[in-house]
Simulated scan of single mutants.
Amino acid sequence: MSVHQFSAKLSNGQVKDLSDYHGKVLLIVNTATKCGLKNQFNGLQQLYDDFKDQGLIVLGFPSNQFLNQEPGDDDQIQQTCQLNFGVDFPLFSKIKVNGKDAHPLYQYLTKEASGILGGAIKWNFTKFLIDRKGEIIKRYAPTTEPEEMVEDIKALL
Rank of each mutant, 00 (worst) to 15 (best):
V150W: 01
G118M: 12
T110A: 08
M1I: 08
Y21A: 11
G119P: 02
T80H: 15
G55P: 13
K94W: 06
N64E: 11
L56Q: 05
Q46M: 03
N84W: 06
P71T: 03
E112T: 13
P146Q: 08
S19K: 12
L109V: 05
S2Y: 12
I121C: 06
L91M: 14
K127C: 01
L91Q: 11
H4R: 12
N98F: 13
I137E: 13
A102C: 04
E145D: 08
P104C: 02
N84A: 14
F128M: 03
E112S: 11
S93W: 05
K138V: 03
G86H: 12
L37S: 00
I95N: 08
I153Q: 03
G13K: 02
S63Y: 02
D152Y: 13
L18R: 04
S7H: 14
F89K: 02
D17N: 15
L117G: 09
F66D: 14
A113N: 08
I153N: 01
L56E: 06
V15A: 11
M1F: 11
Y140L: 08
S114C: 06
K24W: 01
E135Q: 15
L10E: 14
G43N: 09
V97A: 03
K94A: 06
A120C: 03
V150K: 10
K34L: 01
Q54S: 14
K38V: 10
Y106M: 04
A120Y: 01
K52D: 02
L156R: 06
N64T: 11
I116R: 11
E148R: 13
A113K: 15
Q69T: 07
Y108R: 09
Q82N: 14
C81Y: 07
E145F: 07
D88A: 01
L44P: 05
L18S: 09
V97C: 03
L156I: 02
A102E: 07
I95M: 05
D49E: 10
D17A: 15
F92E: 11
K94L: 07
Q82W: 12
P142D: 09
M149L: 12
T80E: 15
F51D: 05
F51R: 04
L129H: 03
F51T: 04
G43W: 06
A141E: 12
L56I: 05
E151G: 09
G72V: 05
I153Y: 10
K52Y: 02
K38I: 02
E147A: 14
F61C: 05
E112R: 13
F6G: 07
E147P: 00
S19R: 09
C81Q: 10
